[in-house]
Amino acid sequence: MSDVILKVENLSKTFHSTNGQTTQALDKVSFKIRRGEIFSLVGESGSGKSTAGRCLIGLERPSSGSIVFFGKRMQIIFQDAVSALSPRLTIGQSVMEPLDINHIGSRSSRKEKALEFLRLVGLDESSFYRLPSDYSGGQQQRASIARALALEPDLIIADEPVASLDVSIQAQVISLFQNLRQKNGTSFLLIAHDLSLVRRVSDTVGVMKDGVLVESGATEQVYQNPQHPYTQALIQAIPVPDPAFRQHK
């Protein structure tokens, strides 16, 4: 068991809306994430993959099931970078926030650390004193990634971390994740809908539909030999670059 960092068993979550309707967002979802692994959850919007991530970090209360975390710290990167940073705090204050809350280190060492992580995500040191509104969405997302990294978590839940970024920045964020995994052995739960991106980066993939984890396994195995009809349909829908078509142009 020592190589497992997170074990989820029979995780269920039911939402009750005000007009008496209930929605089963998660239905007995079970999976394991090993240390240093990039585990991806894919599925259409509303399939419950974000809810799963939010349950894991404690932002939602699961209705039933068990979540066992064998690591020390878990952090989450949100999809919406613009509202993930307080408009009143400078980028530096936001990145230092997790250190402030947990009283880690002295004031000067916190600042040192924040600057280090800002550099790591490719932001200028001058960003430390600037407000998020001075920056683009991509830069804000990188700042919020720096904030998540500041606690040096051993599991990062990345909820559509690159959906709001343009393609060149996407590649940089993904390669940053891969570097972190290599250097620190950080594990990732990557929540995404971009199937070709998932195939490129993840070791294990779980496919969700209507709150049910319909299939999971090693990425290549799932992509090359999908078992569940929904997975088959998903994989068939990936656009394939067509060399024959290209020649017409």
């Binding site: 970090i57 404690g58 932002l59 878990m74 952090q75 989450i76 949100f78 919406d80 509202s83 993930a84 940073l85 307080s86 936001s94 926030e97 997790p98 809350i101 947990n102 919020s144 904030r147 606690l151």
Partner: peptide, 9 residues
Amino acid sequence: TYIEAARTM
């Protein structure tokens, strides 16, 4: 979201 982020920290 930044309130949620603070809670997760």
